[in-house]
Every structure is written in C-alpha cells, then in structure tokens.
Amino acid sequence: MKHDSTMDEGLRLSIDSTQEDRAHAIRDALRDAIVDRRLAPGTRLPEAEVGTLFSVSRTVARYALQMLAFEGLVQSERNKGAIVSNPSPEEARQVFAARRLIEPGIVATAIERIGPKEIERFRQQLAEEDHHKARRGVDAKRSEIKASGDFHLLLAEIAGNAVLEKFMSELVARSSLVIALYGRSGVSSCGHSEHEDILAAIEAGDSARASATMLRHIDLMEGDLDLRPRDGLTLRDALQV
C-alpha cells in the first residue's frame, strides 16, 4: 500500500513486510471499532496495550496508530499518547460540509457508469440494511450504521475515482465518529428510506434529483446531531481480542 509522505517514513522502514501487514490489520481492527462506535471519542489507545492485545511490538502498534492519525481518527496528546479523536462541533460541521461538496458529484458520476450489475449490488446493500434494521440490540444497531455507511462507499466505488473513494472512506469514518459523539442514542441518522430515494433517482438517470436527494439526506444526518456525548467501551472490551 502506498503511504503519504507526511507519515513517518523512518518508522515504516524500521519494520519488515510481515510486520507492516500486521500493522495494517491492527489499523483496520481499530478503525472498525471506532467507526461502529465501540470505541468512543476520547478513549485512550496506549501503544503498550495495543501491542499486548495484538501480540506485536510497540513499534508495530505505533505504526498502526500513526496510520489512524493520518486519517484523522486518532490524535496524539502530550503525556497521554494516542486517543480516539474527539471532534468539536465546528469540526463536525466541516465534515458534513465536505460531504455536501463531494457526494453530489459522486452521484452524478456514478449515474454515468452504473448498469444492471451495479443496481443489483445496491439492492443487496439495501437488503442488508433492512436485515440489520429488523434486529434489536446494540450489535444490530452498530451493524445497521456500518451498512448505511457502506451505501455511500459503494457509490464512490462505482463512480470509479480511486482518490474520491479513499476520501469518502475517510469522510464516512469521520462522520461515524461525529455521530458517536453527537448522534441521538439508538437512531441511525443515515436513513434507509432516503437511500432508496437516492437509488430510485439513480436508476431513472436523473442526476439533478439524485444530487438534490443526496444533499437533503446529508442535511438530515447533520440535523440529527444533538451534541450530547456518548460513553464507549474500554479498548480491550471494544476489540474483544
């Protein structure tokens, strides 16, 4: 995987390819725990504990945390080490402002590239959202939120722009972090019915309607925020490793 030049190249070169693969796996596990709200904003992520939980050295754990920091999901604080980022209300507004700028364009591009196979993938995605929505419990809600985010990532994938796809992956992750801190408890702010409306406009080839529906959808997601903080699990409990 190609790494941005702003990351610590010396740290990457200090580990071998097997350790680097392990660092990516740790990054993915932590990322999933943050995105699906098992790790709350402000949760400490000590290198030593991460290394112990995943049976790796602190150097490998540090590299995994550094990748998360580059994505904006983790931040380092003096004398505290790495913690799950705790976005301010202004940062939350900026995340959704970025989505308003990016996603209508992604929708328009996806319409130009979409075909029957891609429509079927969206149908399967909506069916997965339905499945999780019908279930009860915290795990079901987390799965529903993840599936809802996957709808937006699928749009970016079908649009066929790798840079935008990566950017959307980071935006969806940051949105989940914002929702973890400010979203109403038990409510998926990424509405399934709105996804159906977006897909209907895409199927009709109506770029203007699809983009307008996406903007309304993002407005509703942001409007669902109530600024009340959420408690999360400990690092060990969240990862269950």
Rank of each mutant, 00 (worst) to 15 (best):
1 M>W: 10
2 K>P: 13
4 D>L: 15
4 D>M: 14
6 T>G: 00
7 M>D: 05
8 D>F: 11
9 E>Y: 02
9 E>H: 12
10 G>A: 11
12 R>Y: 14
12 R>N: 09
13 L>C: 09
14 S>E: 10
16 D>R: 09
20 E>V: 08
21 D>P: 05
25 A>T: 09
26 I>V: 14
27 R>F: 12
28 D>C: 06
28 D>I: 09
31 R>P: 11
32 D>K: 13
37 R>I: 12
38 R>V: 03
39 L>I: 09
40 A>S: 13
42 G>D: 00
43 T>I: 07
44 R>K: 13
49 E>F: 05
50 V>W: 03
52 T>E: 15
54 F>Y: 06
56 V>E: 12
57 S>A: 08
58 R>T: 14
59 T>M: 04
61 A>H: 08
61 A>R: 11
63 Y>Q: 10
64 A>Q: 07
67 M>E: 05
68 L>N: 10
68 L>R: 00
69 A>K: 13
71 E>L: 04
71 E>V: 00
73 L>D: 01
74 V>T: 06
76 S>C: 05
79 N>A: 15
82 A>L: 07
84 V>E: 06
85 S>R: 12
86 N>L: 13
87 P>I: 00
87 P>V: 00
88 S>K: 11
88 S>Q: 04
97 A>K: 03
98 A>N: 00
99 R>D: 11
99 R>M: 04
100 R>C: 08
101 L>T: 09
101 L>V: 10
103 E>L: 03
105 G>D: 05
114 I>T: 12
115 G>R: 13
116 P>G: 07
117 K>Y: 13
117 K>I: 15
117 K>Q: 15
118 E>L: 04
118 E>S: 02
119 I>D: 04
122 F>T: 06
123 R>C: 07
124 Q>C: 01
125 Q>M: 07
125 Q>L: 08
125 Q>V: 05
128 E>H: 12
128 E>I: 14
132 H>V: 10
135 R>C: 12
135 R>S: 13
136 R>D: 15
136 R>F: 13
136 R>E: 15
140 A>Y: 09
143 S>P: 02
143 S>L: 14
144 E>R: 06
148 S>R: 00
149 G>P: 01
149 G>Y: 01
149 G>S: 09
150 D>G: 01
151 F>C: 03
151 F>T: 06
154 L>W: 05
158 I>M: 00
158 I>R: 11
159 A>D: 08
161 N>F: 02
161 N>L: 05
164 L>F: 11
166 K>Y: 05
167 F>D: 03
169 S>K: 15
172 V>Q: 09
173 A>C: 08
177 L>F: 01
177 L>T: 03
179 I>S: 02
180 A>H: 07
182 Y>D: 03
183 G>T: 01
185 S>M: 12
185 S>N: 13
186 G>C: 01
187 V>N: 07
188 S>T: 14
188 S>V: 14
190 C>T: 13
192 H>S: 02
194 E>G: 13
197 D>G: 10
197 D>M: 11
199 L>M: 02
202 I>R: 04
204 A>C: 10
205 G>I: 06
205 G>S: 04
207 S>P: 00
207 S>A: 15
208 A>C: 00
213 T>F: 07
213 T>V: 13
214 M>Q: 06
214 M>Y: 05
217 H>I: 05
220 L>F: 14
222 E>V: 02
226 D>V: 15
226 D>W: 14
227 L>N: 08
227 L>R: 14
227 L>T: 11
229 P>S: 12
231 D>V: 14
239 L>C: 03
241 V>W: 09
241 V>A: 08
241 V>Q: 04
